[in-house]
Design a protein around this nucleic acid. Structure first.
Lengths: 147, 147
DNA sequence: AGTGATAGTCAGCTCTGCTGATAATCAGCT
DNA sequence: AGCTGATTATCAGCAGAGCTGACTATCACT
């Protein structure tokens, strides 16, 4: 490792490369299911208290509404989700998991969890909790501090 | 915040949005200096035990050699660094900080540090150390566990 | 009926990062 | 010295992700 110490304490460097590493490992683990981490996140968020529209799903994931169009296109081509016009508001596309999508979600989520556990194993439970907590503070600002 | 809890524990979501947030805040803090976080990282890494070539700098930052060309172009246009042919190996471009670059590095680095401290303040010293440690493990694999 | 807002879609732009090719230079071998 | 293969910087071009702006269909309110 030729990375100098000064970089190993820079938050920007660490976040960027941690994400690269995680994305690679997750992509490898999800390859057998024919999806990537971004698509799995969409499948995950679709299981909610009520059926979500594209815009609602996009909002929960923090992606753009126009990006969601392409992602749903791909997932629909793969037979994992279906678009359905909402009966209450015909502007909305309700996105529903197909049975294949539910199966894919279950299995892929299991594989993703194993990757995370493996990568974080050296940290121990306390270390993992502290990492998650730190990232939550970064994402949400100080509001989340009291959780 | 409409983000469901299930996402706030997903490493991928947290890493991505933590990086987005940090990039925004750092960009704002660095705007007065006319550089962004990526360029500041290059300036930082140039201060080393010996003068670095473009390839060496790229290696330390984990960016591609072809990307480094464009970054150095920009920094050179801004008058912060200068390319100089190595005398020992005329294939290499030695990248040197100009006086303006050194001044910019000092001030910008101070501003970046303040942003990080502010964002991480709710965590306390122990929380910050645990976050850094967790990210280092993610980046470097389990080899770093014993540090 | 009419007006303004909302949801989905599409075309097109930017940014980043990468591959592949090229020219200059170096190092090792004969 | 000459030849060969590797290395450095550069450039053109491609792919992915995210965004803006425009358009259509639909809704909510008056």
């Amino acid at each position: 490792m030729t990375t100098p110490d000064v970089l190993m304490n820079r938050l920007g460097y660490l976040l960027k490369h941690a994400q690269i590493r995680l994305t690679e490992e997750v992509a490898e683990a999800l390859a057998p299911f024919g999806i990537d981490g971004r698509e799995l996140a969409v499948l995950t968020v679709l299981v909610a208290e009520y059926p979500l529209s594209q815009l609602e799903a996009a909002g929960r994931l923090g992606v753009d509404r126009t990006s969601m169009v392409a992602i749903v296109d791909v997932l629909e081509d793969k037979g994992l989700v279906e678009r359905r016009k909402s009966e209450h508001d015909r502007r909305k596309n309700i996105i529903e998991l197909t049975p294949a999508g539910q199966e894919c979600l279950r299995e892929a989520e299991k594989a993703r969890g194993e990757v995370e556990r493996r990568l974080l194993a050296p940290l121990g439970d306390d270390g993992v909790a502290a990492l998650i907590r730190g990232l939550q503070v970064l994402v949400a600002g100080p509001d989340v501090a009291g959780r």
